[in-house]
């Protein structure tokens, strides 16, 4: 189902992920979050930004356990656990956060 962002219609796949990575802008995350009844704060944004940087470097969206470990290393141990990440992204830090970040579904997510 396509989503409307700043007057543009962006194509998404059947699970709601952006079809074209280059379509992403911060408003995409805001609108997707709103549909999930979430209000994004700076902690959400830290993760979304982290995911986009990870994709830029490695060309994949990391699996949840990879994300968890990497977040712990980069943003601090207290954040590198699934409890913290699931509190931020109740539908799964891999799947939901990657979707907000405009990335494909994580590789190695089962």
């Amino acid at each position: 189902m396509p989503i409307e962002v700043n007057g543009k219609t962006l194509e998404t796949d059947e699970e709601g992920y952006l079809v074209n990575l280059s379509d992403w802008e911060p408003a995409v995350a805001e609108i997707m979050a709103k549909e999930d009844d979430l209000e994004l704060n700076s902690e959400h944004w830290d993760i979304i930004t982290f995911l986009r940087e990870y994709y830029e470097e490695y060309q994949i969206a990391p699996a949840v356990r990879v994300l968890t470990k990497a977040v712990g290393k980069k943003l601090g141990k207290e954040k590198g656990n699934s409890k913290y990440l699931y509190a931020l992204f109740p539908y799964g830090p891999g799947k939901q956060a990657c979707r907000f970040a405009g990335l494909p579904k994580p590789t190695g997510c089962i």
Binding site: Y58, Q59, P62, G108
Partner: peptide, 14 residues
């Protein structure tokens, strides 16, 4: 074509 060579650098994370 997609250049997937950077992905080999992620193997350590996995």
């Amino acid at each position: 074509m997609k250049n997937f060579s950077p992905t080999y650098s992620a193997l350590g994370d996995y």
